[in-house]
Write a protein that binds this DNA or RNA. Structure first.
Length: 266
DNA sequence: ATGGTCGATATTCGA
């Protein structure tokens, strides 16, 4: 059985409550069937469930906490086996999974950003980021074969073309060699395929995040590809398209991340 | 070398 004409989006929304209008705009302009969000920044009781249901997403998996992190999946399709997962001995909310009606398992992740100093000996946040990758790598290595999609803000730009300047960012958190090694180990542990680079040539620059601090983000174009969509190899034939919706970075009161859209065919 | 901007929350932290 295929994954008939499903459109999936992943987006670090940087506060769901501050950006309900952006979800509405995404629904109008791209109409994804499933929207995976990161950095919802709200405890579950205060999540805008009704507003999301009103624009066509009655099925919701919400795994959040006060002020920080938080993931959510909004869907036109029913969601089953909704689970939240904890990592590194913390009770924060960075990983959830659901199963779609076609049996495909979707994992939605927000990997720790890692702070500013890329040294685990002096920066606990960076140590946490590396630990998180190691635990994920071990876990995915132990999972049986299945039909799975993993999306989210992985906070690593792995390729030279995933950043505006490979040379200038080699010591900047998100593009250091040790992070890229950890990212690659996690990817390889389950044979994940990068669905976006499946369509966009690795020689071509591609970003999904542009800092708020740039005077003119579009003109400067100092981006990084921090957001990813991975699929198990048995789904690569079902991939129809993958794009970064760069326009959304320029929408009113934007997130600093753009959504990624991936289409699956029959 | 530095500082630039957001959101949640409380006057700072994390990104």
């Amino acid at each position: 059985m295929g994954i008939a004409r499903v459109r999936l989006a992943t987006w670090n929304i940087n506060s769901i409550r501050a950006r309900i209008h952006l979800i509405q705009q995404l629904a109008r302009e791209a109409a994804p069937d499933v929207i995976c969000l990161q950095e919802t920044k709200v405890e579950d009781a205060l999540f805008p469930r009704e507003a999301m249901a009103e624009i066509g997403y009655p099925h919701q998996a919400i795994f959040g906490m006060r002020a920080y992190h938080g993931v959510a999946i909004l869907s036109k399709l029913p969601l089953e086996k909704i689970e939240g997962h904890h990592w590194c001995g913390k009770d924060d909310t960075r990983h959830q999974s659901v199963v779609l009606p076609n049996g495909i398992e979707v994992h939605n992740l927000y990997i720790p950003a890692g702070g500013d100093e890329p040294d685990p000996a002096v920066n606990d946040k960076f140590a946490h980021k590396l630990d998180f990758f190691r635990e994920q790598t071990d876990w995915w290595g132990r999972q049986s074969d299945g039909r799975r999609i993993l999306v989210g803000d992985l906070n690593v730009a792995p390729l030279e073309t995933d950043v505006w300047s490979h040379k200038k960012l080699l010591k900047i958190v998100s593009h250091t060699p040790i992070e890229v090694e950890h990212y690659e180990a996690m990817r390889a542990a389950h044979g994940w395929v990068d669905a976006v680079r499946h369509f966009v040539d690795p020689d071509e620059k591609l970003y999904s995040w542009w800092s708020y601090r740039a005077r003119d983000w579009r003109a400067a174009d100092k981006g990084r590809r921090l957001d990813h969509v991975w699929v198990t190899p048995n789904l690569t034939d079902s991939l129809a398209a993958a794009t970064v919706l760069k326009d959304a970075r320029g929408w009113e009161k934007a997130s600093d991340h753009a959504p990624i859209l991936v289409d699956f065919r029959d």
